[in-house]
Simulated assay, not measured.
Amino acid sequence: MEKERLWRFGMDPDEVGDFLADYGWRVLEQAGAEELIEKYVRPTGRAMPVSEIERTVLAEKV
């Protein structure tokens, strides 16, 4: 049985806005590892690692 791959692709964070704009989205916020930990992990009381390559993007349809 083949293990399902979680990561589909990656991109330079500076290219995310243009990429999403091609699909009608506008970036509101991008968060890197430190921001993810401070904003989303630490408030849960958990101490889980976040890789430096992990980012999250908040975008809205325009």
Score class of each variant (00 low, 15 high):
4 E>G: 08
11 M>N: 12
40 Y>T: 06
48 M>D: 14
43 P>L: 02
38 E>I: 05
29 E>Y: 13
40 Y>K: 10
1 M>A: 15
9 F>K: 12
56 T>R: 08
1 M>R: 15
1 M>N: 14
5 R>W: 05
24 G>R: 05
20 L>I: 03
52 E>K: 10
56 T>H: 06
41 V>P: 04
56 T>F: 04
15 E>D: 14
3 K>Y: 09
34 E>G: 08
10 G>Q: 09
32 G>C: 05
27 V>E: 04
41 V>L: 10
60 E>F: 02
51 S>Y: 04
52 E>N: 06
35 E>L: 07
29 E>G: 05
40 Y>N: 09
57 V>K: 01
22 D>F: 07
25 W>I: 01
12 D>W: 06
18 D>P: 02
27 V>K: 08
56 T>L: 05
3 K>L: 13
28 L>E: 14
49 P>M: 03
42 R>D: 13
56 T>V: 14
44 T>M: 11
17 G>K: 11
15 E>P: 00
27 V>L: 04
34 E>M: 09
13 P>C: 09
1 M>S: 15
46 R>A: 13
42 R>Y: 14
46 R>P: 01
19 F>R: 14
54 E>L: 05
43 P>K: 03
57 V>C: 06
57 V>S: 01
60 E>S: 05
20 L>P: 04
48 M>K: 14
12 D>G: 00
